[in-house]
Simulated scan of single mutants.
Amino acid sequence: MRIGELSERTGVARRLLRYYEEQGLIVSERCANGYRSYDVRLVDRVLQIRGLLDAGLPTRIIRQILPCLDKPRRIVISEATPDMIALLEAELHRMNRRVECLARNRDAIAEYLEEVRIYARADAA
C-alpha cells in the first residue's frame, strides 16, 4: 500500500510516517516509480508506535523494544545497556503512576455519574 493509505488507515500523518521510517521504526520498499510501498502489516506496527509515543517513550527506545512486540518475540539483549535498563524502569514506573491516576479519575467520574443519574431519576419522579 502507498503512504496515503497507511496514513488513512492509521490516522498518522504522512510526515510522521516518513519520520518513523527515518528513525528505523518502519520500513518501506521503493517501487520502480520511486513511490514508497508499505506492507499491510505495518498498520498494526504504526498503531503500536503511536501508542508507545503517546505513553512518552522516545523513538530510540521504541526502536529497541519493537522486536519484543513481534510474534515470535525476538529480544535483542546486546543493546540493553545499564542506562537503557534504568530508562525503561523509570518509564515503567511513570506509566504505572499514570495508569493509577487514570483509574482513580475513572472511578471518580463513574461515582459522580451514578450520583447524577440518581438525582435525575429522583427529579423526574
Rank of each mutant, 00 (worst) to 15 (best):
I61G: 02
S28L: 07
R98C: 01
A80R: 06
R106W: 13
M95A: 14
A86H: 14
A86Y: 12
L17C: 04
D39K: 10
I75Q: 00
R9D: 00
S28R: 14
L57N: 08
E22W: 10
L102F: 00
K71L: 11
E79K: 00
A32Y: 01
R117I: 09
V116E: 10
I85D: 03
R73E: 02
R15P: 05
G11R: 06
A108V: 12
A103M: 12
T81E: 00
P58D: 05
D107R: 08
L57T: 06
Q23E: 13
E100Y: 03
R50W: 02
R73T: 07
Q64S: 02
N33S: 10
L87H: 12
E29D: 02
G56T: 09
R63S: 00
R15E: 07
A120L: 04
L66F: 04
V40C: 01
I85Q: 11
V99C: 11
P72K: 11
N33G: 02
E114K: 15
R60P: 10
A124C: 02
A125T: 08
R94D: 15
V40T: 01
L17A: 01
L57M: 14
E111T: 11
Y35H: 08
I118G: 09
A80G: 04
E114C: 14
I118Y: 10
E21H: 07
E29Y: 03
Y20Q: 09
D54A: 15
R94V: 09
E100H: 11
Y20S: 11
E114H: 13
T81P: 09
T59W: 04
H93P: 08
R36W: 08
Y19H: 15
V12E: 01
L66E: 02
Y119E: 06
R14D: 01
Y20G: 10
A90P: 13
D54C: 11
S37Q: 14
G11K: 05
V43P: 13
I26M: 13
L57P: 06
R117V: 12
R18W: 06
R2W: 08
E29Q: 09
